[in-house]
Nucleic acid binder design. Structure first.
Lengths: 353, 353
DNA sequence: GTGAAAGCGCTAACAA
DNA sequence: TTGTTAGCGCTTTCAC
């Protein structure tokens, strides 16, 4: 038996040449067929597809990327995959990207700039066609790396003056105003706010919108009732306890995200306070979980699907149509109030326990 | 100005040739330096690293993969990224993989075999060095694709007779026995079990271990108190409601996972039942969340870190040392009981509400 | 419409 | 120890 044949049967995966041989065409025709070029006659195209099926051929993306310069890989960097908001976002992003013919590379930074830089570097090595930076802050140093190499990026809540960078603006204001109005209508006047870590743009924007909404509602702002937390369950517990130590207490607490709110629910329970009778609580995000807390959480919904769509769209247009002069570079995602069981009219007992 | 220089300044990324030119060595030496070959003299190595830094050079992984045949990419396919268990697993897996010089490709199938097949195909195209299939069931059809192409895989709770396939056995038994003993010691005799979907190996194993533990504790098994749910919050609620409709009720419910248990907590609350006074509840997984439910959930811990470690180790050894005859192909991850606030001695009122 | 051939950026075998 | 060179599997001119 000739050597060549022996080697073939020995398990080498079929390549484009093998397909070409079986279909009795050139490798160029195989390539064109796979890539849907209109220049291939139906007759040959049919033969090629048949050969592909017969050999169970899978194109090698690395070879493809090497010559075409496009990897069809999109990076998504999130702040903390352990916060349910992000898996839900990743899930949407993956679905949309895969439907669009892309693969995704996921990284979670835990708000560590070093980790973030390493992620960016790895994504650069993998020649991603774009990166969605969903860290909501601390991204500036990394941006340079990415932008400098001409990789399209999309950021949340942060504008960058570079043609390759897009921004998704989050309109928290609508949802937060609705929340404050809801509370005011219920009769609350004393509102606290458990903020996210100030290192995040989102945390700052949310707090500002809270303050603006309070003023718009004609209510007083109590600075000591605005406390920086860290967007985690534990942080929510800690924030609540800090609030409790004060001489006076709010009758309702708005939280910068759902995790914080769920932490508050827990801490209030431990302190013997009933939600919503003794204390009203509002979250932000509307993670899947929010519907199942005790009591079900009233919260401000931020659609992961919308966010994922905007991120993908921004990246796709940048990657596939980079020279379009009137490309959309700003996207807006809105928020809305979802009323559930954690809000009610205020009672006499305020955080007293 | 010569054309070449103009082109360079025009933004082409530095390649290995550029580094070689700056360092005044051959490209082979650059390659050796990057790959830590011991054959490079310190003098040249230093020059090369300096040139790399100066040019801000990043090796092209696709070119590397193409010639070396190794992508340093590991796939991880999970059942449902929306179940907090999985993000925590992915997080661990990513950390370990990155530390080991690998990148990961994440996919979530939502228990859809079609999606799973598509994932596997995409991973094959990307030439992953291995795949961790953490779907706990329904993986057989896909296995063929992967195994047939010689890609190392690691499965949870499913043995495959192929030299490239490893298995992680989960010892639920220890944790479940401890849980039943805990309940028995508290005085419970009437125990229910909300199972996972029977399409998952894990669900079946867990239920079997529950039955075995009940018998071992000398307690009666009530078949009607064993109900198939689906490992989701909603499923937990539904399972509880089904249980409530029965003529008699268990005083304690063990759940196949934490999501189910949290659903039960929610449903019990809605039904006016107090946990743990009126009903004891035990989960399985010990997701981060479990500590923050109301009341904090007593649960059987399954370490994500251990699981991630085992998966990575299995894949790494298969990828890097495939011919080692005495390679470990079975790994064991254990479970243990974590007692928190959702269990207490039984009261007279049983699920009556 | 189709094919031949030139690389994409890198590793590894072989020479020196 | 270092350099030269032949591809890895594919896309994309450029001829025909």
């Amino acid at each position: 038996m000739p050597r060549k044949s022996a080697r073939k049967t020995a398990g080498k995966l079929p390549d484009i040449r093998a397909v070409a041989a079986v279909a009795k065409v050139s490798i160029a025709t195989v390539s064109r067929t796979i890539n849907g070029s209109s220049l291939v006659s139906e007759r040959l195209s049919k033969r090629v597809w048949q050969a592909i099926k017969q050999l169970n051929y899978l194109p090698n993306t690395h070879a493809r990327t090497l010559v075409s310069g496009r990897s069809r890989l999109l990076g998504i960097i999130v702040e903390n995959i352990t916060n349910p908001f992000f898996p839900e976002l990743i899930q949407s992003f993956e679905e949309i990207a895969v439907a669009g013919g892309y693969e995704i590379l996921v990284s979670s930074t835990n708000s560590d700039p070093g980790v973030l830089a390493a992620c960016a570097r790895r994504m650069l090595e993998r020649k991603v066609d774009g990166v969605a930076v969903m860290t909501f802050g601390e991204e500036e140093p990394v941006l340079d790396q990415l932008v400098h190499r001409g990789v399209p990026i999309v950021l949340a809540e942060f504008k960058l003056d570079d043609p390759k960078a897009s921004t998704i603006l989050l309109d928290y204001s609508t949802g937060i105003h609705a929340a404050i109005r809801h509370l005011a209508d219920l009769g609350h006047r004393d509102l606290g706010f458990l903020a996210g870590p100030y290192s995040l743009h989102s945390a700052i924007t949310r707090e500002n919108d809270f303050r603006a909404a309070i003023e718009a509602a004609g209510l007083p702002i109590q600075k000591k009732w605005i406390i920086e937390c860290d967007h985690t369950l534990k942080g929510g517990v800690a924030g609540f306890e800090q609030l409790r130590k004060l001489a006076t207490h709010p009758t309702a607490i708005v939280c910068s995200n759902d995790m914080t709110a769920i932490g508050v629910l827990r801490a209030a329970y431990m302190a013997g306070l009933r939600v919503p009778q003794d204390l009203s609580v509002i979250g932000l995000d509307d993670v899947d979980f929010a519907e199942y807390t005790l009591p079900p959480l009233t919260t401000i919904r931020l659609s992961r699907t919308d966010l994922a769509h905007a991120a993908f769209e921004a990246l796709r247009t940048q990657a596939e149509d980079p020279d379009n002069p009137k490309m959309q570079r700003e996207f807006l995602v809105s928020t809305s109030l979802v009323v559930r069981g954690s809000t009610a009219p205020p009672a006499a007992v305020h955080l007293k326990g």
